[in-house]
């Protein structure tokens, strides 16, 4: 099945400070009480937003149209709930840039066509400050050139080669790939001692 190639994402940025932001904060568990992902975006960071009031970046009008989320380190740790990147993606965010990401969050994001790109700690600080000082500044995450530019800055980004390749080729939705040459899967299964038993 052919899916979209993702080579670059352009748009304004939403800065979100804090290390170790977990998926319970991104989307509290009570909003997982549903059999679909629809409407999750309305509850993105619900409790953080309630507690921070109008000051929370997600509550501020100047960030309403943001396409890129700037975060710090170990973003998306904790629960494997795909509801977290689903809520982010459905809010209109098309890329996340930060120091590091939890692996399950990262993988879930790839499956949704939501690239997570890494920058150094110093560059992350500079980017967040830039987006705070001049909301609306347009940034471009260029996956081909492995760089992020905007607000007068150009910084190198890292995306693990496998994920980057999947975006550039448009193979980030892996199911079809896994169904290719299915006889090889069956052969592996047939050799496993616990299946033979």
């Amino acid at each position: 099945m052919s899916i979209e190639r993702i080579t670059s994402i352009r748009g304004s940025a939403l800065p979100l400070r804090g290390d170790n932001i977990d998926t319970d904060r991104i989307i509290p568990a009570r909003f997982l009480r549903s059999v679909s992902f629809e409407g999750l975006e309305d509850h993105l960071f619900e409790d953080d937003r309630q507690q921070a009031g109008a000051a929370h970046p997600l509550s501020r009008r100047e960030y309403a149209a943001a396409a890129i989320l700037f975060v710090e380190s170990n973003f998306g740790c904790g629960s494997s709930r795909e509801h977290a990147p689903q809520a982010i993606r459905r809010r209109g965010i098309r890329a996340v840039v930060g120091v590091s990401f939890s692996e399950i969050f990262f993988g879930n994001s790839v499956a949704l066509g939501l690239p997570c790109a890494s920058v150094s700690t110093d560059e992350s600080r500079v980017l967040i400050a830039a987006a705070e000082q001049a909301p609306g500044s347009v940034f471009e995450l260029d996956l081909e050139a492995r760089q992020l530019s905007g607000a007068g800055l150009t910084v190198p980004v890292t995306v693990p080669p496998g994920a980057r390749d999947s975006f550039l080729r448009g193979t980030w939705d892996a199911t079809a790939l896994l169904l290719d040459h299915y006889e090889e899967v069956e052969a592996v299964a047939a050799r496993l001692p616990y299946i033979r038993a």
Partner: peptide, 27 residues
Amino acid sequence: HAVRQLPNGQTQLFVGLHLIHEVTSPQ
């Protein structure tokens, strides 16, 4: 459990046991 190397460098692994529950499976 390795089936093959995928074009993006990842490994396709056969899953021996898949467990599901009501929250993350309906979708």
